[in-house]
Design a protein around this nucleic acid. Sequence first.
DNA 1: GATCAAATTTCCCTATACGTCAATAGATTT
DNA 2: AAATCTATTGACGTATAGGGAAATTTGATC
Lengths: 128, 128
Amino acid sequence: MPDTPHKGIQEVASALGVTPRTLRFYEDNGLISPQRVGSTRVYSRRDVGRMQLILRGKKLGFTIREIREFLDLYDTDPGHREQMEHLIVRVQERLDSLSRQKAAIEETIEELDQIVHEANAQLRQLDS
Amino acid sequence: MPDTPHKGIQEVASALGVTPRTLRFYEDNGLISPQRVGSTRVYSRRDVGRMQLILRGKKLGFTIREIREFLDLYDTDPGHREQMEHLIVRVQERLDSLSRQKAAIEETIEELDQIVHEANAQLRQLDS
DNA sequence: GATCAAATTTCCCTATACGTCAATAGATTT
DNA sequence: AAATCTATTGACGTATAGGGAAATTTGATC
């Protein structure tokens, strides 16, 4: 009858490449809520899937707070219309932010290149 | 005789666009050391110039610790040969780090674009 | 000498995503 | 039963660059 293979915190953690501490941390922050057997956490397949979504969001640079917003909407929004709209807004914001970051990095790279050239010129002058 | 116009902390701060708090903070961290008249800080032209270097370093993304390294070498290295070599190394490191960041951002942007498209597709499907 | 404004010092606070103990409880092994 | 292993909870620590506020001292002015 145990159709869905429930797992312990260690298994889930190493399967996802995180530490148990991280799973507890996300639970404290309301991102997941595995069952308990006594006080021990037991994770279902859905819990693991949810964690994968969370980790994807993290990789894309969303904060835990933002990820929780997505998940909350996902849970309370049948059809997921509102969720999708919210998602699009947030993703656009993030895209804008990243574009600005990228531009700033490009500027900085140019300046640093300049500095390297100047410093090398200095050195050659000391050599002569 | 007061050829170099010494300035108070307020003047220097607003001239540089920082707060007095920041100047005291940098002093606590050994980046500058203005004279004192009694207990009051008095900044020379050299102090202000040093601050401008510091702010440039910050703008280029160096940490306060790194900036202090540069300045320490600058102060103890007549001819500035060693300083230049150290500078080049650090600047190269920073350039590498920024290149990696840029690549990561570009990847992330692509993924997010994907997500926007998919989410929009979802919405159109809900409309039909 | 009293007062007022400016400056200094000292200490705690902020955000973020966990890491690192320490104490405790339950379950298992010897 | 004692020892060992795993898990939980709670509290505190980490890095970064200052912000904010309180208490005290100083300097200048009247």
